[in-house]
Amino acid sequence: MLPAVALVKQVPDRNSAFRLAGDWIDESSLGYGMSDYDRSAVEAVLALRDAGLVSETAVVTAGPDEASQVLRTCLAMGADRGVHLVCDRRALADPFPVARALADAVRDLNPAVVTAGLVTEDSAHGQVGGLVAGLLGWSWASAVTAIRLREDVVEAERELENNRTAVVELRLPAVLAVQTGINTPRYASLRGIMASRRKPVRRVEPPTLRTPPEAAGLRRLTLRRPDRSAGAEILEGAPETVAEALVERIRSGAGIAFRGRGR
């Protein structure tokens, strides 16, 4: 039986203060964690292992030293081992070299199935899983909402537009980018946290992630605030004041009448 691998990225916590420093994000104002997509990717491989369909589960991340935190979270959830591709956070801006390094690490683990998140909550490329599949010549499906692993194929459901779902059959090995809602990710138990301390994490420094960003395929990445010229008129004040103004504007702006007490 072969193992399963989940790819996880340490991303800024949703509740961080997102500020710009020049034309890039002010990293000093960010807290970090794991995204909902990646939690679901990890849960998916744990479920395969718990069902006895894969031998064990490994989690792989590329990122700076602090990114070992997300591996620890995964191990505490129940993953068996971790691989940390250590690199500067700036080296993560271009998905291609990241995918190349991840592909090398994944190939060494010889899995039946690899899961990734559909997109990251930071740069939202939605590509790393597909690039890994493309580089390895493995099967690929994105927006996966169900996984059924069989002997030498995996059947996956893909979310399409307009409330349609595609059912696809993929040869193994396959890389699957999971959509949120595919499962309910488990939390780490206290026992899981204790056990995680004894689980192995291998550190690798991939030479390809030492490449200066300028040599990469995506260059000159900058960030700016979206143009808000067409944005909302903002109501200010105490909740009661705002509420009264809202009532007025809902009547006049939207032409809505309020339902009487009779109901």
Binding site: F18, A124, G217, L218, R219, R220, L223, R225
Partner: peptide, 12 residues
């Protein structure tokens, strides 16, 4: 990018 908080510009 960043859940729509920022617009990212990138050169290919």
């Amino acid at each position: 990018a960043f859940s729509g908080k920022f617009v990212q510009e990138v050169l290919l």
